[in-house]
Structure formats: C-alpha cells, structure tokens
C-alpha cells in the first residue's frame, strides 16, 4: 500500500504526520503546565483559564482559523511582531499548520493530562521529598511515570485531532500542496476536482488506516503503561 502511493499522496501523508507531530510536541509543555495549574492550584479567575483552554473545542474551527489569521497574519498584531522580531511567518506555512494543530488539540491534551495529574496522590510526592528527593527528581521519578498514561492519551488525542484538522487550517494557512495541504485538505481538493474520485477514495482509505494505527498504538501503549504502573494485567 505504502509503495503504491503516488508522489502527491506521499507528500500529503508525510506533511500530515509532520504537522501533527510538531503540533503535539509544541503544545505538550504548555499543555502540561496549564493542566498542572488547573489540577493543583486554585486562584480567582481559574475558571476563565479553564474556559479559554476549551474554546477551540466549542468554537467552529473556521472561526478559530479566522481569529488566528487576524491576530497571527503578517498584518495582525502578533503576526507582525513575530515577523519583525524573529522573522517568523506562520500564515501559509507548514509551521502555521502545526501551530493550528497545536491549538486545536490543546483542549484534548489538557483534559487528559489534568485528569492524570489530579489522580496522583500528593502523599507520594511528600514521601519522595521526605526521602531526600529534590523537586526535579520528584518530577522525573514520580510525577512523569505516574502521569504517563494521561500523557500518552493526551498526545494521541491531540495527534488524532491534528490529523483530522480541516477548518481552522484552511482558514489560517490555506491549501498549498507540499506546504499546508494535509490529508484532509488534499481529500477536499481531490473531491473538488472533476475525475478526482479515484484519488479521493485512496485518500479516504489512507486516513482510515492512519486512524486505526493511531488507535491501536494508543490502546497498546496504555495497556503496557497500566502493567508498568500497577504490575497488573487488565
């Protein structure tokens, strides 16, 4: 199947993977930080942050993409600053597509991480510190292993969301083959082209296979993680 891919399909697939993976990696540290704050601290205005994080989940994706375009476009307030200060251009680039992927997957990642962080027994952290472990060592040896199921679930959810992302992407970075044309966008283009049904069919198959592989990986990983954490199979 992979060897049968046409160059155009191959480009769309690898771009999709690159965009989704980059999006997940970029959003992970922020997602962890926000999830930690939401799970472990309380302050006035926390509900506001909670709401803000969930916005991409409830606002129509095209609207999100348009908001991003207005603020991160080269004429937008943030976009023009990024361009002049760091020479970073997000709009109509694959980096922009990865940024969209990060934003759209963010609520899913935060939700999974937050649940996992809330489930950590603070007593274990106290025990580790009483045994002489610095906060860094506690993070690496206790917190990370214990949140790893949530971490994996969050990353895979965000990854899947990124693979399927359409509306916000097309609104923010357009549909440029080889740059921003991910699988769903390529599928859309194929279906818009007369005689493109054949290619469309193949892209649908590819998307389904990718989704199944991701799901299976998620299931296997979470089982392995459960075994590692509890020493039990189930």
């Amino acid at each position: 199947m992979i060897s049968d891919l046409t160059p155009a399909e191959w480009i769309a697939l690898s771009l999709s993977l690159k965009v989704a993976l980059t999006g997940v990696i970029v959003s992970l540290p922020f997602g962890f930080g926000i999830a930690w704050i939401l799970a472990r601290t309380s302050f006035p205005g926390k509900i506001l942050i909670d709401g803000l994080v969930h916005l991409p989940l409830v606002v129509p994706p095209v609207a999100t993409g348009y908001i991003l375009l207005v603020s991160f476009g080269t004429n937008g307030p943030i976009g023009s600053w990024l361009l002049s200060q760091f020479d970073i251009r997000l709009v109509f680039t694959w980096q922009g597509a990865a940024f969209v992927a990060a934003i759209m997957g963010f609520p899913l990642m935060v939700r999974a991480l937050r649940l996992s962080i809330e489930a950590i027994d603070t007593g274990l952290i106290q025990a580790a510190r009483s045994l002489g472990a610095s906060p860094t060592r506690v993070f690496v040896t206790i917190i990370l292993p214990l949140v790893s199921p949530g971490l994996i679930a969050g990353c895979l959810l965000a990854f899947s969301r990124a693979l399927g992302e359409f509306g916000a992407t097309i609104a923010f970075v357009g549909n440029i083959p080889g740059e921003t044309q991910t699988l769903p966008l390529a599928l859309y283009s194929a279906l818009q082209t007369p005689g493109g049904e054949q290619m469309g069919y193949r892209l649908v198959m590819l998307s389904v296979i990718l989704a199944i592989v991701t799901l299976a990986a998620s299931e296997l990983l979470s089982r392995a993680m459960h075994r590692r954490l509890t020493g039990q199979t189930s």
Binding site: L124, Q126, A127, S130, R228, L229
Partner: peptide
C-alpha cells in the same frame, strides 16, 4: 528548610509506596 533537606525519615499511615 525544604522537606528533602531535613534529614528526617517519615512513615505514613498509608505506607505511600511508589506504585510504579
């Protein structure tokens, strides 16, 4: 002093062994 700098050993009611 931070708990890890107090040179004390703690045994809790609920053991608090690291499950992983």
């Amino acid at each position: 002093l931070a708990p890890e700098k107090r040179d004390l050993g703690l045994v809790f009611q609920d053991a608090r062994l690291f499950p992983h």
